[in-house]
């Protein structure tokens, strides 16, 4: 066998180490990036949570805004709720999607803990969530004036996430539109 060919195993190994080392720089393997980013918000027609006789559609979600997917069976959503109330105070619109939940419990949740949402839709069977590519709760989307999805955050929104990521996004959207 040619003398150089004895180096092949070593070369393969070094390439492997490089790839594995690269693995550490990558994102958490459990976090999925959203493939809906850049696309228009999915079409839907679902009842409003607090006014069930009204049907809401995607046109009712007027951006720039946050769209928050939440449920009463999700423990982190309780903690996130406080942060959302604070964020709402800054004048940002927050829409809610009540995901695979009991509507009565959800209404009780809002009346007990406060309602920072402009409106909430009842996604009882989770179809809208699937169309959004949601795989757990809570998740929060940023939508622009035209109703396109710009960003998805997985997990609870807290002060840091708001300050570092979401707030700048909303502000640039609002700034771009005005004037």
């Amino acid at each position: 066998m040619a003398k150089q060919s004895f180096l092949i195993p070593l070369a393969i190994f070094l390439a492997l180490v490089l790839i594995l080392g690269l693995g550490f720089t990558l994102d958490d393997p459990h976090r999925l990036p959203s493939v809906r980013v850049g696309q228009p918000f999915p079409e839907f027609s679902l009842p409003d949570l607090t006014k069930p006789e009204i049907e809401r559609t995607e046109g009712d979600l007027k951006g720039p805004a946050l769209v928050n997917v939440w449920a009463t069976w999700c423990p982190t959503c309780y903690a996130e709720h406080e942060a959302l109330k604070v964020i709402e105070q800054t004048g940002v619109r927050i829409f809610g999607i009540n995901y695979a939940d009991d509507a009565d419990k959800a209404r009780a949740f809002l009346s007990d803990l406060g309602d920072p949402y402009v409106l909430n839709v009842v996604d009882a069977d989770g179809r809208l969530a699937i169309d959004l590519g949601v795989y757990g709760a809570p998740e929060t989307f940023v939508i622009d004036r035209e109703g396109h999805i710009l960003y998805r955050h997985v997990g609870a929104v807290d002060a840091r996430v708001w300050q570092e990521t979401l707030s700048p996004m909303i502000q640039s959207l609002a700034g771009a539109g005005s004037g």
Binding site: T25, D27, P33
Partner: peptide
Amino acid sequence: LIYEAATGGLK
């Protein structure tokens, strides 16, 4: 891993 690194985050 290779795919994610090469495509800048897609899984």
